[in-house]
């Protein structure tokens, strides 16, 4: 059957990994925040801000890695707003997160429009190019799949390992996991609950922004309105799918990427008989089904969503 031949296609697997890359950044970022006990629904807007800020920096003359740094900084900024509102002030994490999404999205569009009032088609930059590593790239099948990717995809994959190491093998990660389970334990041991949580949200948010920057600086070469298109929300869902573990987060993002790449290819084969919207919808429907199956038994960080105030126990 033709539909199954898609899986033997190098381009399909390369596309899956490309589609997964921004989600890997997003899931890792959301995972860090939630492991510390803070849900960050600002993610969708932080994606937009990262996409815009990174692209804009490069367009204004910064290097590509300079753009990545600017994107991370923009993410950290909006993350800090969310952190201050929800951690020392203890406001609703849902409300603050949605507010940050709206603020970051609007601020990004506003900046873009103000900086480029007259353009009709989005200006382009020279984005990251596929990394060609000699010998390795010549491997059959795996070579083309991996080495069609840019440095940012590699960064995403490396970050999975880094986040895993920090969370599971360092005293800092220990403290972050503890503060997401029982802030009283952290406080009783003389560590700062606020400091750990704010730090986690700021770092997590800058990773989210890198997911946005991937879209304008690696997958595409320009910034469009509406280009994030719910990727942030997908990342939030994938965190639950991943049960807050970096390795599973990578798996979840790849799975979603594969769904998405598969539906595009399936469309060209049977698109004449089935409306295209069905295909566009498929990855999202599958994520909802996966969530319904998995989220019921999910082991949430115990202190997730619960504000903690010093001196109240």
């Amino acid at each position: 059957m033709e539909a199954l031949e898609i899986f033997l296609n190098v381009n399909f697997w390369a596309a899956s990994l490309r589609i997964a890359s921004p989600l890997i950044f997003g899931v890792l970022g959301a995972l860090i925040c939630e492991r510390a006990g803070v849900l960050n629904l600002g993610i969708e807007g932080i994606f937009v801000a990262g996409a815009m800020a990174g692209w804009m920096a490069v367009w204004l003359g910064a290097g590509l890695w300079g753009g990545v740094a600017v994107a991370a900084f923009a993410g950290a900024f909006f993350g800090l707003i969310h952190a201050i509102l929800t951690i020392p002030l203890g406001l609703s994490q849902h409300v603050s997160g949605l507010g940050v999404t709206m603020l970051a999205t609007s601020a990004s569009y506003f900046t873009y429009r103000t900086a480029l009032p007259d353009v009709s088609s989005p200006p382009r930059i020279v984005p990251f190019q596929p990394l060609d590593i000699p010998i390795l790239s010549d491997l059959p099948f795996l070579g083309p799949v991996l080495f069609q990717q840019t440095a940012m995809t590699w960064l995403a994959i490396i970050l999975v390992g880094v986040v895993w190491w920090v969370l599971n093998r360092t005293p800092l990660g220990l403290a972050v996991r503890a503060v997401g389970d029982n802030p009283d334990a952290v406080d009783a041991q003389g560590l700062s609950v606020y400091g750990l949580r704010i730090g986690a949200v700021v770092v997590g948010s800058s990773l989210m922004a890198l997911g946005g920057a991937f879209l304008t600086m690696s997958a595409f070469d320009a910034f469009f309105f509406g280009m994030i298109n719910g990727r942030g929300w997908i990342a939030i869902a994938l965190v639950i799918f991943a049960s807050w573990r970096p390795g599973k987060a990578l798996l979840g993002a790849l799975l979603f990427g594969a769904f998405d790449a598969f539906q595009v290819r399936l469309q060209t084969q049977v698109g004449a008989f089935v409306p295209s919207q069905i295909f566009l919808m498929a990855p999202y429907v599958l994520s909802i089904i996966a969530l319904v199956l998995l989220a019921r038994g999910a082991d949430y960080p115990r202190a997730l969503l619960k504000p903690w105030f010093k001196g109240q126990r």
Partner: peptide
């Protein structure tokens, strides 16, 4: 004041 997702050792060493 214990984090249930950590081992006993990690709780003791925390901080």
């Amino acid at each position: 004041a214990l984090a249930e997702n950590l081992t006993a050792l990690d709780n003791i060493l925390l901080g």
